[in-house]
Amino acid sequence: MSGRALLRAGLGLLAGTQVVPALWILLLPELFWKWPWVSHLPPYNEHLLRDFGGASAALAVVLCSAAAALERRLVITALVAYLVSSVAHLLFHAQHLEPLSAASGAGFMALLGVAVLLPAALLWLAAGGAALREPERPVRRPAP
């Protein structure tokens, strides 16, 4: 698989990891709240959940745009934005594992770790070139 194809597939996968929970949260926030990895941190706050769902949907838009365009600055920006979110998510949950069983906590940390390692690997690939498009430069015309 070429670097471009790998980046496009990775960006699409990351976008999917945002679209699914975003739709779930925006359409059924109470059902999302009942998920064991979420509900152990009460109280329920529909406003914050819907804000998080909207932010996840917005990040999915950026990731999808990067996957479609494969333009260097957009890809790097999308991956850095995803990394900022996923590192913050991992750090928070790493400090709040006590309500979970050992197996559930380990699984959750593994999942959140992949959410950091995958975009980091894709960022490394993108920074190395991966045959990404360079941004188009406007043509400067001499003044008449």
Rank of each mutant, 00 (worst) to 15 (best):
L6T: 13
E98I: 01
A120T: 15
A55I: 03
R140F: 14
L63S: 07
G107T: 01
L123H: 10
K34I: 08
V38I: 08
R140E: 15
L31G: 08
R133L: 06
L91E: 14
Y82H: 09
D51I: 11
A66F: 10
A120G: 15
L49Y: 12
A15D: 12
P144W: 11
L117V: 12
T17D: 09
L63F: 09
P138N: 02
L90S: 10
L123N: 10
A22R: 14
G129E: 02
S65E: 12
N45L: 02
L83W: 15
P138K: 00
Y82C: 06
F108S: 05
A5S: 04
L7T: 08
W35C: 03
A78I: 05
F32T: 07
M1H: 08
H47A: 11
R140N: 15
R4I: 05
H96Y: 07
G128L: 09
G12P: 03
L63R: 09
G129V: 02
A78D: 04
I76G: 00
A126S: 01
P29S: 01
A121S: 08
A68Q: 13
E30C: 04
S85E: 06
A68W: 14
L11Q: 02
L122H: 11
F108P: 00
S86D: 11
L74F: 06
A102S: 04
E136W: 04
S65Y: 13
R133F: 01
L28V: 06
Y44N: 01
H96F: 03
A143D: 14
L49K: 05
G3M: 00
D51T: 12
A58F: 10
R140Q: 15
P99L: 14
A68D: 03
S39I: 11
V75Y: 00
H89D: 15
V75P: 02
V38N: 04
L48P: 00
L79V: 04
